[in-house]
Each structure stands twice: as structure tokens, then as C-alpha cells.
Design a protein around this nucleic acid. Sequence first.
DNA 1: AAAGCATTCAACCGCCGACGC
DNA 2: AGCGTCGGCGGTTGAATGCTT
Length: 270
Amino acid sequence: MGRPPCCDKVAIKKGPWNPEEDIILVSYIQQHGPGNWRAVPTNTGLLRCSKSCRLRWTNYLRPGIKRGNFTPHEEGMIIHLQALLGNKWAAIASYLPQRTDNDIKNYWNTHLKKRLKRFQSATYDHHQFMSKNYVQHENSSSSVYASSEENISRLLEGWMGSSSSTSSIYASNNSLVKCCMPREIDHINVANGIKIDDDQLQCILSHCDHGLIDSVTTNCDCSGNLVDHQEKAKSDYSDPPLSFLEKWLMDESAIQVEGDIEIPDPKGLA
DNA sequence: AAAGCATTCAACCGCCGACGC
DNA sequence: AGCGTCGGCGGTTGAATGCTT
């Protein structure tokens, strides 16, 4: 015996909302605040079920919602967070307060997932080759991450704080995985060619200072003695860094060269 | 111009956990 | 403890729109 659906009532309207309904809903919520959705249809006279009202409000009418194209910065965050959290759209949306979980989910399903698939098929042969030439790190068994929101928050702290920045920190997939290992953040690999702004670098370095990250691998001199070439060499020969993946995913031009995708020389990623 | 196909995204559905009785 | 209700979530659908032929 399951719970009866909330929309079983006769004369419950379905489908797209019209402006009049939106106005009624918004003015009601302005007066009473969101919540107690059960009471909304009765008190407003809307022929909608409570769920429909809540959904309309949270996904469309709620103030502060940003609509339209996702910025590369937002794309990067979604890609990162999806890799970390999986399809936890509400959790991902909590890091992008201007976007709704529905928007993020739709964007992932219609844009990013497709690009990811293309990427994976394009790099399949590359993986086959590399897997034969790379001895797995002895600790690779620990690559099953335990998602810790605290760790993720820490990691994204600097990034989220620089919303206007177009450059980003791209940690390799393995590195992010390690973040959630018993020792919080072990390692961040800042891949080749990625620019980091001062805030972001300070954020990473402060994690080092506080013992949250053991080392930072970069190929730029700015990180000084934090460069860990041994770790870098290992990560270079594991799965392609997420930074590369993201660069590829976010490169619109990549879409147009489907079937003729150039796999970068792995040494070039070092 | 129009028919057919592909893509997008708002909205719905069904399940789950929290909570109150 | 058991049941019902509610809010929230992720997966899915289908109408609207865009694109191709």
C-alpha cells in the first residue's frame, strides 16, 4: 500500500504554468513565505497540486535564480562536483546557489554528458595504450573516494570566492579522489598550462599550511618547493587528468572536430 | 515551404527520509 | 512500533523549438 499520489484529485491542472498562475503563486509566497505547500493550492485557488507549486517556485520563480548559458566557470564546477558527488544534483546546486538542481541536471544531461561520452570514446585507445605502460600506484586501491562535503567545501573555497575569474584550478581526478582519503587532502595536481590566480594559489597553499594538503604539483615555479615531480610523474601516467578532460569538454571547438580528435601526447601533459 | 528529425528544458512521477500522531 | 503526511530528490517525459534535408 503506497502513499496516494498528491495529484490524484479531479480538476488538478497539469502542464506549463501561465503568467496568471505565476503571479498568484508569487504574491502568495511574498505574503506568507515559502513552505507549507500543502496549503498553497487551497489558499490561492490554484488548480495545481502542492508539489507542482513548490517545483514552480524553486525552479523558476524563486528570486536570485540565474537563467541562460552556463559560464565556463560554472561548467568547471559542475564537472568537478559531479565527479566527486555523482548525480547528487541538489548537493551540486548548493555550490551554485544561483542555479537550480533541475537546471544543473538538465545541463549535465544535455550538454556535459554528451561531451564526456565523446571524450571517453576518443581517449579509449589512448587509455588502452597507457594502461599497458603504467604500473599502478601501490595505493591506487584507495581511489574509491568517500565524499566529504567538508573537504569539498574546503577545496572549492578559493574557487567559489573568485567568481569573476575565468581561470581555474584543475585538480586531477586522482588528486581529488585522494582528497577524501583518511588524510583529508593529500595532493593537488595543477596540470600543465593552467593559470592560477593569486587567490586560488593562496587557497591551495593555505591548505598546505594547515596540513590539509601534503603537496601541490605544478609545472610552474610559483609553487616553489611544493613541486613534487615524483607524484606528478605518477599522475601523468594514470588516467588523463581531469584538467585535460575539462579543457576538452569546455572547448566548444572540440565538438566540431568529432571523429578527428587529436589526443595530446601524454608527455605534453607533464 | 514543409516534413522529419534532434535537442532542450519545464514539469511530472515515484521513491525516500523525516516528522508527528 | 506503525501509519500517514509532507518536503525533497533524482529520473524521466513530452511539448516546444531548432535544425536539416
